[in-house]
Amino acid sequence: MQQTSRRAGWSRPAALAVALTLVAAAVVLPGSRDALGQAALPHGHPTLQTTGVVLEDGTEATRLVRVAAGAVPESGQDPCLHCHVHGEDTAITTEPLRWALLVTAGMVFAFGMFQSATVWRTRRPWVPLRVRAVRWLDERYAFTEPLAKALGKPVPAFAMRWWYCLGGITAFLFVVQAFTGIMLAFYYKPTPEAAYQSILYIQEEVRFGGAVRTVHQWAANGMIVLCLLHMVRTFIVGAYKRPRELNWVSGALLLVLTLAFGFTGYLLPWDQRAYWATTVGTEIGGAIPVIGELMMVMMRVGWDVGAATLSRFYALHVIVLPVVTIAAMGAHFLMVRRLGLARPL
């Protein structure tokens, strides 16, 4: 009882201090109000154009260059520095941020007043919001009991060895791939004309674009390595035997799906390496007797790798394979949960 009152005694001044700081920050935050007036600037924002350049060894290459639009402010001055250093260009996020600060401060203040009024009126200790939210939801969904049962499920102690967490890391890498993949899909254009340029754009212009693309590449390779290691562990321990046969089969399916992810994703940058790797790869598939040729034509959508191939690989990579993989992962995890881990001898 005493502890609750002491905590409540500290929380209200603290909340008030936070609220006042936020209000002060929101009011004092520097920056001009006519921030979005692009026309007010002496020149437009620089744009990107591609030009052919001749490299040192005489070969030609395509590069993305930044071209300043309109008049450059002063001779010798970087047009970007001109705007950003002199404060003419405020970010588009400034206004919403200022409002978010103000609204947060208001909510903190209102909540503090409500809390004080409630405690004063009811003469009972304050019930934390988290507890109220759980009670409210539990009344409707009755989830606390099943959740506690699921979370408290006993796991054999031998599963704490490091080689038992390889599968978990693989699953986490899939989440990383989904996350970075969606971010890349926001900017990527799956046509032969635009694909290569959109990759350059992601790398050079999109904020953290190059980092996200590189993480996507690394996590893709890591996922294959960890898939294989997880499978090797399962194989050596002999965990594929009855009654876990289907768990092994779903795991093998997940390995094939991961490799298919890699194969379809490799084409998407549409550079020479991607184009010819896919040409050779589908050709090897075409050498399989009976079904090979049909398979090759269906993968390439025709006899050659072209625009239709890129569209198909993109659709497979971002829609079909993820859906199938999530389903297979669900089956895989449910079976692990149901059957438990195989006890090593």
Partner: peptide, 21 residues
């Protein structure tokens, strides 16, 4: 991945020339 992202120009697989059939 934070380290990989920070060093992406060093550890990334750079894009080659545009595809030419």
């Amino acid at each position: 991945f934070l380290v990989v992202g920070a060093l992406w120009r060093v550890v990334g697989h750079p894009i080659g020339d545009p595809a030419d059939p």
